[in-house]
Design a protein around this nucleic acid. Structure first.
Length: 570
RNA sequence: GACCUCUUAGCUCAGUUGGUUAGAGCAUCUCACUUUUAAUGAGAGGGUCCUGGGUUCGAGUCCCAGAGGGGUCACCA
């Protein structure tokens, strides 16, 4: 790939620095005494500081300059005065290194003294400066005016996701999103640790992809010569640990599902799953609403958040609605006691398409998903799902047509899914077998039977409540994002195709001098075909013209030299 | 998987009915400037108009195919 003019100039600056005896990529650590935000909040004049960061802008006014230095916390203004930076006769560091050889994007370390400028800006008067790393590619030139309006924003989603490192440098809100994500996870972890529950790791590679109904990614283990699947859920493993005697276990589980991608689905995503013994789903609802209020407070400083202009109030308690009530409320249909055929008729009546592979549970799920889900904007627990659609859930204590299950809906989206866990091994086996029948009817999402899990239940699992919380979607809600890609640092994308680039060794074998190789490529003569379009004399003329134009400090080419290249190729 | 839509300078974008040498702002380079802050003033350079075909005297613009992105739907507890 041909380098842009800006890249060529930066590489020349790099070489010039080395010629001046300045290593652009020094090995030594650079200890820092202050960072931008903390220095600014406890600012005082005449403070000795040492800082490091990236040059984000330079305003050069002859013998004095201002630099915006960006570090991990934010940015801070530096003031460089030629005679303060270079008190002696030699002004190279200011005149050449700073003004000519450094660019926007370069990392520098500085020492100096704090002061306030005439316009009242907190600044550091730089006394010494060290080059820490040279940036060879120009950063997008995002500018923010005095009204906070962003100009020339780096906004192309493809480029932003593919080069998240650039996105993070120039778009501060992106960094804030991922800091919020970290706060969400930290809050959950510290809350659970405080409760005495154990954070565990369970297998990602599984022989039976259980615990959910989804199409798995398949791989192969060579030594065992067996297929393995990337986990679609970790539920069955965490329950085995409850059998093993832990009272509470949780895991931040990266799950993988080989399904479609869109605004709310990425092939790999994170679910936090928690299982606690001797509890039921009522307890879990109370635990969940308290946890979410804490998380929201950690991110926003209050238990309310705004999502697409709508205020979401995470303050407990949340509304609790049974699935039967929810469907009755929004469609007028009472699903209670209805047969599969009756439900199918109702679906057709209200315009929901059905097919023969759909069982009772699936039909009810369709009605809820199509007609009810979107109405639950404020946090709401939808409780008591029909037994057919919840094969891992204990039947309801009062009515065996339902299960003790809830989903937490926020802004019309499912955020969490929880049960009083099914711990009756015989019932569990029967439910798995019902799933198998569904799968024979053509429902390709029905679950596999995990015999070892059934054996674990036969050893006895205490009454347990469990929950899975979709971390990515939760972060979306708390950061006011509508796309999952905005809350994943590196969302899945089609792989980028890179040009292999010209073969520099080939040029070397033609006899092109090392000093010329890059320039011959840059000038567009990286292949024998390109050369053969010109005579040796013509090529020499073009390359020497290129040398002159770019003021290259290398010997001009002689006709004899260029002729030998052609001789080698032929 | 289907449909819609986008791809022009490092970034953000104009580009008329198909018509001269493809433009702007920022960024870059040169010069000036010792408290600026979207610094300023003067000047300059920078392009595989996503790729490949086609129509045409002539294509950034029209047609076909492809690549990549975005959106909607389908799929996805």
């Amino acid at each position: 790939m041909q380098r842009s003019e800006q890249e060529r100039i930066r590489r020349e600056s790099l070489a010039t620095m080395r010629a001046l005896g300045i290593e652009p990529y020094p090995a030594a650590s650079f200890p820092v005494s202050h960072r931008s935000l903390s220095l600014s909040t406890s600012f005082q004049n005449e403070l000795d500081v040492t800082m490091a960061g990236r040059i984000m802008s330079r305003r050069i006014m002859g013998k004095a300059s201002f630099v915006e230095l960006q570090d991990s916390e934010g940015s801070f203004q530096l003031y460089l005065n030629r005679d303060e930076l270079c008190p002696g006769e030699d002004k190279t560091l200011y005149n050449d290194v700073f003004k000519k050889l450094l660019d926007r994007g370069d990392f520098i370390g500085i020492s100096g003294v704090t002061f306030t400028t005439q316009t009242g800006e907190q600044s550091v008067k730089v006394k010494s400066m060290t080059v820490l790393s040279k940036s060879l590619k120009p950063l997008p030139a995002v500018k923010v005016d005095e009204d906070g309006k962003v100009h020339d924003a780096f906004s192309d989603p493809e480029l932003r996701y593919r080069m998240r490192y650039v996105d993070l440098v120039v778009n501060p809100s992106v960094k804030a999103t991922f800091e919020a994500r970290s706060k969400v996870i930290k809050t959950i972890r510290s809350s659970f640790d405080q409760a005495g529950w154990l954070e565990v790791d369970t297998p990602v590679l599984q022989a039976i992809p259980g615990g959910a109904a989804a199409r798995p990614f398949t791989t192969h283990h060579n030594a065992l010569d067996i297929p393995l699947y990337l986990r679609i859920a970790n539920e069955l493993y965490l329950k085995r640990l409850i059998v093993g005697g832990f009272e509470g276990v949780y895991e931040f589980s990266r799950n993988f599902r080989n399904e479609g991608m869109d605004r709310t689905h990425n092939p790999e995503f994170t679910v936090m799953e928690l299982y606690v013994a001797y509890k039921d789903y009522h307890w879990m609802m109370e635990t969940t609403e308290r946890l979410l209020a804490d998380i929201c407070t950690a991110v926003h400083g209050q238990s309310k958040a705004t999502l697409q202009g709508v205020k979401i109030d995470f303050t407990p308690p949340y509304r609790r609605v049974t699935m039967r009530e929810a469907i009755l409320e929004h469609t007028g249909i009472d699903i209670h006691g209805k047969s599969e055929d009756e439900l199918r008729t109702e679906c057709t009546r209200i315009g929901i398409e059905t097919d023969d592979s759909m069982g009772k549970g699936k039909l009810i799920d369709e009605i809820f998903g199509e007609r009810c889900e979107a109405h639950f904007i404020q946090p709401t627990f939808i409780m008591d799902y029909p037994v057919e659609m919840s094969p891992l859930t204990k039947v309801h204590r009062d009515d065996d047509a339902y299960t003790e299950r809830f989903e937490l809906m926020i802004n019309g989206t499912e955020i969490a899914n929880a049960y009083s866990e099914l711990n009756d091994p015989d019932d569990q086996r029967k439910r798995f077998e019902d799933q198998l029948k569904l799968s024979e009817r053509g429902d390709d999402e029905a679950m596999f039977i995990d015999q070892d899990f059934l054996r674990a239940l036969e050893y006895g699992m205490p009454p347990t409540s469990g929950i899975g919380i979709g971390i990515d979607r939760l972060v979306m809600m708390l950061t006011n994002q509508t796309s999952i890609q905005e809350v994943l640092l590196f969302p899945q994308m089609r792989p980028e195709v890179f040009d292999a680039g010209p073969d520099l060794n080939a040029l070397r074998t033609w006899g092109v001098p090392d000093t010329w190789i890059q320039h011959v490529v840059d000038a567009g003569f990286s292949s024998a075909e390109a050369l053969n379009e010109l005579t040796p004399a013509g090529l020499r003329e073009r390359l020497n013209g290129y040398r002159k134009k770019n003021k290259l400090d290398i010997p001009a080419l002689t006709l004899e030299e260029v002729e030998t290249w052609y001789a080698t190729i032929a």
